[in-house]
Design a binder for these strands. Structure first.
Lengths: 235, 235
DNA sequence: TCAAAAACATGAATTTTATCATATTTTTGT
DNA sequence: ACAAAAATATGATAAAATTCATGTTTTTGA
């Protein structure tokens, strides 16, 4: 974790319009911008670690991040992802407890750190921001509930299909339908909640069935409707 | 769902001190109290149904409630519980989408309904209430993450032990260590995320191993430390 | 109160999934 | 560039869990 020479400015941050901070007033923005820190992370570096305490929140300026918990056997379970414009670590800040999850980069990333006092100040004084936060938490809670139901009820094959679609929705596809994030088979297994070998086998099956194409860690979704059917998604 | 002759008053509600509404000012309280509705539900009745839209939130005055989703095969997955003083349905209200889960009573209950406009009004004007909401959502989000990890990684036996401890923490034990909520084996299975037969078998094993005692739907936790070990809980 | 329905229980068979063993390929660090 | 390490791949086996079948008990409603 090296400090970059030139920290990005919130005012000119590409991610801001997409983030919860879009609701900030000019002076609030400036306040944060001049008090935040900013760090560059290599691929695979840990930003924060479960059980620790942090005094602020992180905002992703650039890059892709996984948020994960460590299970009782030491196995990692990926809970969700964060990308440009997303904030992470707010759950621990709001609940005032230790971090319930860790965060690590999936590629080179720049992440800003906003001290607690500034965040709380905005929460206290900007009902608009406040409401945006509530909405964001609500959305995540809904997503978490759906994940719980799927983990409890769907077989591994369906869950893998669904995870691929989740990655598509989170990180988008490029013009050739490649998922715009590179994960190891083990990381995929840690989303799906299964063994690495099972993911490897099922990915091969999906490829054989012409649902996807694989080249190393690059996954191309060549038949999304069929994949959606595999995932058995209703909604 | 019959309307009771005398709706409870928020001002004298036993549940209020434990609820998010403890932060309300006198006039806010009165405002809600005189504009809420109140319904009595028999055991097993549905309060609201997944996919529908509601224009307000529910507050449990008395009783015990399960919040559940229906999976793609029609199987119910219990996401969480609510008891006296808890509010339910706020996720849908805040995210402004349809309900992502259903709610049904586990015993005779009285549930109040507070129209959306009054809730939003308080959210807009009472930062204290607002912050309490944020905290509540954060706490739930942390719990959901832990459930996800457990479902993904722990075997059924551990998850059942853990579910029994969850019920203990949520509904307490009486002086004889009986869990203060009566669930069917199927409902237990729908928390654990397993087949009803598996729950039946494992409960018998737990009984044989002197971890619990069973009489119908009554479960007595006679060896909580051992049960905690079974659940393989770290924290 | 009694018959029907629902819930509970248990064994056997089957399916799903994980684990283990062992190559092969790819990546990484020097 | 090359050796070591990590990741990917695949088959065989084992374990875990579900499903099915069937019987018993409990609850429910007329």
């Amino acid at each position: 974790m090296k400090n970059k020479p030139e920290p990005p400015h919130c005012e000119s941050c590409d991610s801001r319009p997409k983030s919860v901070f879009c609701a900030l007033a000019g002076n609030e923005m400036h306040d944060i911008s001049s008090n935040k820190g900013s760090s560059f992370y290599e691929r695979g570096q840990v930003i924060f670690h479960e059980g620790n305490r942090i005094n602020g929140i992180y905002c992703v300026n650039k890059g892709k991040i996984k948020i994960y918990q460590t299970g009782s056997e030491g196995k990692e379970q990926i809970i969700r992802f964060a990308k440009e414009g997303d904030i992470i670590g707010y759950r621990a800040l709001l609940s005032e407890g230790p971090l319930s999850a860790s965060a690590a980069t999936l590629e080179e990333s720049i992440v800003c750190f906003i001290p607690k006092s500034f965040v709380l100040n905005i929460i206290q004084n900007n009902p608009n921001f406040n409401f945006k936060l509530l909405k964001m938490l609500s959305k995540e809670l809904g997503e978490a509930a759906r994940i719980i139901t799927d983990l409890a009820q769907k077989p591994v094959r369906e869950r893998l299909a669904e995870s691929l679609l989740l990655l598509k929705n989170t990180f988008e596809l490029d013009e050739e339908k490649n998922i715009q994030v590179k994960l190891s088979r083990e990381e995929l297994a840690n989303i799906v909640g299964t063994a690495t070998e099972s993911v490897i086998r099922l990915l091969s099956e999906f490829k054989k069935d012409k649902l996807i194409d694989i080249e190393g860690r690059n996954i191309k979704l060549i038949n999304i409707p069929a994949l959606t059917r595999e995932a058995n998604i209703m909604d």
